[in-house]
Amino acid sequence: SVNPMAYEAQFFGFSPQTCVLRVYIAFQDYLFDMMLVVESVILKKLDAFPDSKLSPLQIRKCTEKFFAFMKEHFNKLFSNLEKVLLQLVLNIPPNLLLPEDKVHQQYPYSREQFQALQDEVQELQRQYRAEASAGQALRAELEEQKVVQAELEKILQWFAGLESICREHGTSNVKESFTFLTQNSKKLQDVLKDVEKKRK
C-alpha cells in the first residue's frame, strides 16, 4: 500500500497490512478447505447411488461455481473490512505520540542542536580527563615536595648539628673563636720569641 504505516508497525510489532492479510487468508483458506470437504462428502454420498450418472467432474463444476460466487462476494465485503480495519482499528491518529517517542516531544532537537550537545559533552569529558590528570600531577608534586622538603630539613638539621657542636665546645661563634685562637697563637709566638731572645 502507498502508506507503509510504519508508525503503526512500530506499535503493533507487525504492519497493519499483514494483520489484514492474515484475516483475509483465514477467510479464503477456510472457504476453500470447506468447499473441498463439501465436494468429498457429496462424492462419498454418490457412491451409494451408482446409477445416478452424476460424474465427479459435474460435481467439481458445481463446486467451482459456488466457490467462485462466494469468493467474489467475499472480496467485495473484504474491501470494506480492509478500509475499516486500516483506518479505524489498526491506525494511530496523527496527533498521537507513542510513549517510547515522548522524548522527541520533550526534546525536539534539530540535527545541529544534537551535534552541538554531543560536542559539548565530548568537550566536558575531555576537560574532566584533563582536570583529573592535572589533579594527579599536583598530587605527584606534593609527593615530590615531601621528599625535597625532607632533604632540605635534613641539611638544615646538619647545619644545626654542626652549630650545636660548636656551641658545646664553647665556640658558638666560630669566626670570633678562630680570630681569638689566631691572636692567641700569635701572642704565644711572640712570647716564645721573647723567651728565645732572653735565653740567648
Binding site: 458445481c62 459456488f66 482499528v89
Partner: peptide, 25 residues
C-alpha cells in the same frame, strides 16, 4: 467488522444459492 463480514458472507452463500449450484445433486 469481522463478524459482520462473516455473517454477510454466509447470508450471500444461502441455501438456495448452494442448492442451485449443486442442482444435479
Amino acid at each position: 467488522v469481522v463478524n459482520t463480514v462473516l455473517e454477510k458472507l454466509v447470508a450471500a452463500g444461502s441455501y438456495e444459492r448452494f442448492a442451485s449450484c449443486y442442482r444435479c445433486f
